[in-house]
Design a protein around this nucleic acid. Sequence first.
DNA 1: AATGAATGAGAGTTCATTCAT
DNA 2: GATGAATGAACTCTCATTCAT
Lengths: 203, 203, 203, 203
Amino acid sequence: MARTPRGARTRAKLLEAAEHVFATVGYHDASIVKITEEAKVALGTFYTHFEGKKEIFDEVVLDLSHRVRLTMSEASTGVADRIEAERAGFRAFFGFTAQHPALYRIIRQAEFVSPESMRKHYDNIVDGYAAGLSSARAAGEIRPVDPVVSAWALMGAGELIGMRWILWENADQIPEHVFEGLMDLIAGALAPTDTTPHEGSAP
Amino acid sequence: MARTPRGARTRAKLLEAAEHVFATVGYHDASIVKITEEAKVALGTFYTHFEGKKEIFDEVVLDLSHRVRLTMSEASTGVADRIEAERAGFRAFFGFTAQHPALYRIIRQAEFVSPESMRKHYDNIVDGYAAGLSSARAAGEIRPVDPVVSAWALMGAGELIGMRWILWENADQIPEHVFEGLMDLIAGALAPTDTTPHEGSAP
Amino acid sequence: MARTPRGARTRAKLLEAAEHVFATVGYHDASIVKITEEAKVALGTFYTHFEGKKEIFDEVVLDLSHRVRLTMSEASTGVADRIEAERAGFRAFFGFTAQHPALYRIIRQAEFVSPESMRKHYDNIVDGYAAGLSSARAAGEIRPVDPVVSAWALMGAGELIGMRWILWENADQIPEHVFEGLMDLIAGALAPTDTTPHEGSAP
Amino acid sequence: MARTPRGARTRAKLLEAAEHVFATVGYHDASIVKITEEAKVALGTFYTHFEGKKEIFDEVVLDLSHRVRLTMSEASTGVADRIEAERAGFRAFFGFTAQHPALYRIIRQAEFVSPESMRKHYDNIVDGYAAGLSSARAAGEIRPVDPVVSAWALMGAGELIGMRWILWENADQIPEHVFEGLMDLIAGALAPTDTTPHEGSAP
DNA sequence: AATGAATGAGAGTTCATTCAT
DNA sequence: GATGAATGAACTCTCATTCAT
């Protein structure tokens, strides 16, 4: 597929249109007709590029997933302090959410449409996150929490916060007090406890 | 509607069948035919009890929402210690999830089907949770976190953990280490910092 | 049917409701449910009085038909001059039309619903009309026109005039100039030609 | 729609089938299934050409309306004498009626289905007719009757006559005595009165 | 590669009618 | 006589997909 430049262009137009349509009306009300109309392409053309509705959906999910992850990792890369890295990562996530509400709308409905895609998406994000926590823990920057469980839990926290204060409010950024409230919580959850008597806590 | 006992019985059968069908195949593939077949009732009968598919969906969501909330509040009521109350509440939540996977499957797809129902559900749960955190905070049992933000965040944490280790694993209960991992995190997030020398900690 | 006073009352309520509903929404959109609701009677009760939808329709048509005819014949009875009788009859017809727009709405849709009823209705009216023309002709009050053909033609004229200026205009009476225009035409059509030296005009 | 010859052909087949089905079983019993079966086209194809049942109905009405009007005006065009023109016009109308009983069956049921279409149809015919009467009157060929009122009245007369002696009798032409009876009436209605002392009526 | 007319299974919904109460 | 829950056939309409061009 898409061996010629023209084909590649058409394909790209279809993907872009599909992301928009899926995000706007949902998977089930997203008809191929709507997608091709939005892409300004004839109906039959769709099938020269994709096998069907689910295939293009999966591609859209994959693409979105890559993009969030990239945005988040770029933001936190190189930040020495773990708590600062958390802040940077979540800021990037909320920023992406505000600019691409499609993310939520598409991911959450993937449950029934394409469970594999959905799992892959969450797994992708958690993998990076858990790795970060793991090394931070090894470095003693955070409490010895379970990195994988924590990654899932914190991702869940971020997800609902984003849904509540960005998606539902149709906001273009997270309210500052919400962000700080969440970071406060996370800091508490991960902060090395004073009771851990390392670092020469003994008098 | 349902002015006779017979009518009430039929209506109940339909609701039960609908919950099952929605949870199994999702909203869009849940046809009225499937629901009435499962309820062993004629197709037309459906429309003597419900206006349409969305109406019965909303009722199913409402019902489920009430039930989780009840289960959770019953579990944590009367537990003096806040951390213990957290444990009890989350245990109840995971238990309910394991027994009613329908909860997730139905709630998560409600995004496009019936946003109002979905919001009502989350709001319901958060309200109770935030109230609990608020009074715990007033009593000095937890750090002075933002109760509402924290409630949403912790609910999100619980949601993804449940999805990952109960739903996806098709488990009938949460693995112990996951539960403890999550509780450890939450305890850390909420635990009163030792530095605050409240409650006459000075001899 | 309707052996008790209660039964007779219920039946009457149903007929009245049916006339209204048929006239308002037409035969096909007139559901039994609507009729019984309007009559404030339970759905099943309908079937203790009528065999079905068509039966009650036929009764409504018959009833309306009788009433127009009665109104018209009462108006023209005893009027000596034929042209005056015409005026009186048409006035009565237009008056009835204005007060019972149901007449048109119901009759015109009867074409497919109940052709027999419709024919009976037209035949009824024409019979009376043609008889009047016939005797007027015998009495030399009008030209020797074909009474039956003329009755149909003039009824048709009145029907469209009523439809155009009462029904479509939602008027509560026929505009005077229209009435006079029509009567002028009819007078011309029926008036004995001056050239016919009938009735021993030559002494 | 119908951007290819094939599409145009299919569309025409559907219209023809629709006219037949509407005329045979009436609007309400004319299902899309019946129409597409008669047109030998798949069900879904219907919806690539028409928005729904009412749309195709309106097109059928419009088409029929155009055709009667054309038939009538062609017949009376160029006929000098007004009374002769009347005869020619009515003959054409009855001829059309006999060949297209669909006209009545479809128009009369339009009352509830599509009042706009029905009015447009009657207005169309009346317009032409009234114009003819108007100029005839100006030319002194007929009495100074109200052209619009008369056009409606005479159209009504023709309509019922056609219904009674063509449609109900399933005749392929109007019985001669009926036609003459009607023309006699109309001639009387329109004929210049003898009292108008033109044409040297004075001895 | 692109086009768009054609397909037909299947959806949600309505409603005249039946029948147990 | 009156009630209203239950029935199921029939309807209109949608849409993913095919295929001739």
